[in-house]
Design a protein around this nucleic acid. Structure first.
Length: 809
RNA sequence: GCGGAUAUGGCGGAAUUGGCAGACGCGCCAGACUUAGGAUCUGGUGUCAUCGACGUGGGGGUUCAAAUCCCUUUAUCCGCACCA
């Protein structure tokens, strides 16, 4: 068979006949299969795309054959940094390059032979989509879930521009190699932290990989502890610290504020001003990676101010240090050098007092400091002798009596910064009015202008577009106003696209509530594990926020999640230009066809693991499909036929049914490699059967028909062609998945192993319906077993029907 | 540093979840058919050796029985990075 010509033929026919059209009148039986949509990069589809889209499509095809009304849409996450960088380099406008890339990719995606329903296609960079991205922003704003605050960005002073983290290499700008500094800008945030607890709890009920759930739990980072107030010694103010170990409070001999802490300028004494400012400037230069490096010394500077330890009234110095993060907790920590490794290092470096207040469980052990385990409180006044676990609560409760402390829960999760000082994104639909302040502009879409200077020169590209910025009036009072010059993070676009697909071209609404209440949640979501913490968390947050506004009535967007593995280069390294090990799907698809390529990806790897590419494997699959073709053709060819079914027929039938059973379990589990292996076994059985001079036509043809249906999800064009060639009516891709008959699987006799003292000794063929007791009796009565036992006394017998009998002597 | 995962023949990978390790395929060896074979078909292929023994990264344990459970250790990969 000329597989490539056959693929062309069927792609055309299927598309004309609209085989893959989602039946919108039957949403009750819907099955929503979603692959993470792709970024329209300039290069061609890579192996990873095929692996993700091709095999998930096989899963979807299996669901169709199981009678589900499958909805499998595709679209493009089309805004983003690469298009803008490409524009800066080449002068090609982001919109032009993006739309062109989309067109190319659409063609390539169609070549996979996947059943995407293109009538529901989404392109996030078009106004009919981003209009609704902006609408979501406005709903969040109205609900109090979007707010502005100052936040640091990576700033390249030479390029005069804001850099994304990935553009900062070793603290330097990837383009000009200048030292990158932090700069505060007022930016928009989404209050995802309001949902921290629900996002955490909700994980328990999701059918997601455990490791992904663990990563999200860790990212949300819930911890229970106490918030403790430290008054300044001169009575001029106070600051709070968060601690999980209030039991160590008596050992607090100093406090450290983050260099960015608002109190720092106020409390620094004149003599320390210069040193403190120099330190703050130095910290602004280090990037986050450097700053958070654990290997680094614990640097810091004394502010000259003192605070009061609220539990014992002791006067303690207040320092600043970059190991304290402004973004976590309260931006201040209590220094307990005896019982915290970082505090210990800091205190040793700067000559601060170290005071032990926790003893180990066994008093005679002279534990070294820092002692960070739980133990028993000492040097702690009335709390002496109390265990840490109780003490950490008791201390906070005591402080609470004087308003100096309370038990709290803290989360590591931060609010989601959505402002980007970029051109190629959805404009933030906010105007600033001299009278009314910030006002959402509900006259959507706020169109992204085309004629913009997006080369970096110190401001957001849109800020320089006079017409965009100033040609607007305040929606509230009508006064001349200005627009926000920033665009939205592309994660905002991708946080709701699954809601748009079912009704992708609705001009009135982002989605129809009644429809998505039926279509969602997504039944199977498949994509890379790298999105575990960002995209997957943002999408859950947006779903929950929209639910609380009444726009939808479900709690989670993705009921079940699968991560595909990574296909490595032939050398076992991640495919990359620098390794020079990139495998192009096109070469193989052109040589063998899409079906062969997909089958190889199915057979060669454990789906969720991935692994190194191999050329030999794909040749083998090509040969195997040829083999399938031979036996299918043979089954429908002329040969001496017979009517009755003898032992050979029963064996073929058994393999056929056991293959159906196994493959029926493998597809839904994304276990494509074992599914193919089982089918190979069926083909081997067919090869054996084909050798017989006289064959039973009904059984032979029945077996190859089932084989084609089993294989259809992985090689749809190939199977459709053979289906037609063997005279079948209708399309195999929408035919019913074969069923198996348990009775055909039963074998009346089974070979079991007889072990003596767990060592294999004798093989016996026995009636497979025997109970353990009957089996034991049968085995012990056997002469060969008696001979092997040699008259030894039997101490114990373990009999497992159908498998083995172990005799202990 | 913390957390997670993985480790099975020459290679990719199976193993009904504690029950005959190595399914299926590649590769390799031998044979058949061929002018030829990079086509096809058949048989063989964990290791060592003669019965037999040894084998799932290493060491220890539980069990009649361990790739699978427990303890310990090593290597590789991936996440997170001082989380108070």
């Amino acid at each position: 068979m000329d597989k490539i010509a056959v693929e062309k033929k069927w792609n055309k026919l299927w598309s004309e006949r609209q085989v893959y059209k989602f039946d919108e009148n039957n949403v009750d039986d819907k099955y929503y299969v979603l692959e993470m949509f792709s970024y329209p990069s300039g290069s061609k589809l890579h192996v990873g795309h095929w692996y993700n889209y091709g095999l998930t499509d096989s899963f979807a095809r299996y669901q169709i054959m199981k009678g589900k009304n499958v909805f499998q849409p595709m679209g493009f996450d089309a805004f983003g940094l690469p298009a803008e960088n490409y524009a800066i380099k080449t002068g090609v406008h982001p919109q032009d390059s993006t739309l062109h890339n989309i067109e190319v990719m659409e063609g390539q995606l169609k070549n996979i032979g996947a059943m995407f329903d293109w009538d529901h296609e989404i392109k996030t960079c078009l106004p009919d989509y981003y209009k609704w991205t902006q609408w979501i922003f406005i709903q969040l704003y109205k609900k109090g879930l979007a707010y502005r605050k100052k936040a640091p960005v990576n700033w390249c002073p030479s390029c005069n521009t804001v850099l994304a983290n990935e553009q900062v290499v070793d603290g330097r700008c990837e383009r000009c190699d200048s030292q990158v500094v932090k700069k505060d800008l007022t930016q928009w945030f989404f209050k995802i932290t309001d949902y921290a607890e629900e996002l955490l709890q909700g994980l328990d009920n999701l059918d997601w990989p455990e490791k992904t759930k663990a990563m999200q739990r860790n990212w949300i980072g819930k911890s229970q502890g106490g918030e403790i107030v430290f008054e300044l010694a001169d009575g001029s103010g106070s600051f709070k610290v968060f601690t999980t170990r209030a039991d160590t409070l008596f050992g607090c001999t100093y406090a450290v504020l983050a260099p960015e802490h608002e109190l720092v300028p106020k409390i620094t004494v004149p003599a320390q001003k210069a040193a403190v400012q120099a330190y703050i400037d130095e910290v602004a230069k280090t990037n986050e990676i450097e700053r958070l490096s654990t290997a680094k010394d614990k640097t810091g500077v004394f502010t000259g101010a003192y605070a009061v330890n609220p539990i014992n009234g002791e006067r303690i110095p207040v320092w600043i240090g970059d190991y304290v993060l402004a973004s976590y907790g309260t931006g201040a920590v209590m220094g307990v050098p005896a019982h915290d490794a970082r505090d210990y290092k800091f205190a040793r470096t700067h000559g601060l007092e170290i005071k032990r207040v926790i003893k180990g469980a066994s008093p005679d052990v002279d534990d070294e400091l820092p002692f960070t385990d739980y133990g028993v409180m000492c040097n702690s006044g009335e709390f002496d002798g109390i265990a840490s676990e109780r003490g950490k609560i008791a201390v906070v409760e005591k402080l609470a009596q004087t308003g100096k402390g309370k038990l709290t829960t803290n989360y590591r999760l931060r609010d989601w910064l959505v402002s980007r000082q970029r051109y190629w994104g959805a404009p933030i639909p906010i105007v600033y009015c001299p009278h009314c302040g910030e006002v959402p502009d509900e006259n959507l879409p706020v169109l992204l202008p085309y004629d913009v200077e997006f080369r970096p020169d110190g401001t957001s590209p849109l800020a320089k577009h006079d017409k965009f910025i100033h040609d607007v009036r305040c929606p509230k009072c009508g006064a001349p106003a200005t627009r926000d010059p920033d665009t939205l993070d592309t994660f905002v676009c991708s946080s709701w696209y699954y809601l748009r697909y079912p009704d992708a071209h609705n001009a009135e609404k982002p989605f129809d509530t009644a429809l998505i209440d039926k279509m969602l949640p997504v039944d199977k979501y498949v994509g890379g594990a790298e999105h575990a913490c960002m995209h997957l968390l943002y999408a859950r947050f947006i779903t929950k926020a929209l639910r609380d506004m009444g726009y939808l009535h479900f709690d989670e967007p993705f009921k079940s999640l699968v991560h595909q593995g990574v296909i490595l280069g032939p050398d076992g390294n991640r495919m990359s230009k620098t390794h020079g090990n990139v495998v192009s799907p096109d070469d193989y698809v052109n040589a063998y066809g899409a079906d062969v390529f997909r089958c190889y990806l199915a057979f060669g790897f454990r789906y969720v693991e991935g692994g190194p590419w191999s050329d030999d494997g794909i040749k083998a699959i090509n040969k195997w499909l040829d083999r399938v073709e031979r036996y299918v053709t043979a089954a429908y060819g002329d040969y001496p036929a017979k009517e009755d079914a003898g032992a050979e027929e029963r064996e073929l039938d058994r393999v056929r049914h056991s293959t159906v059973k196994a493959v029926d379990a493998d597809y839904p589990a994304f276990s494509f490699n074992t599914a193919v292996a089982r089918m190979m076994e069926l083909v081997n059985a067919l090869a054996k059967y084909d050798k017989l001079p006289v064959k039973n036509a009904r059984l032979y043809r029945g077996a190859v028909d089932d084989l084609l249906k089993l294989l259809c999800p992985l090689a749809p064009h190939f199977c459709e062609e053979l289906w037609q060639q063997t005279g079948h009516e209708g399309s195999i891709v929408v035919s019913k998945f074969p069923e198996y008959d348990e009775r055909a699987l039963k074998v009346s006799e089974a070979e079991i192993l007889v072990q003596i003292n767990s060592r294999p000794k004798v093989r016996l063929t026995v009636d497979s319906t025997l109970s353990p007791a009957e089996l034991e009796k049968f085995v012990l009565a056997d002469s060969r077993v008696a001979e092997a036992l040699g008259g030894a006394a039997v101490k114990k017998v373990v009999a497992i029907p159908g498998r083995l009998v172990n005799i202990i002597i």
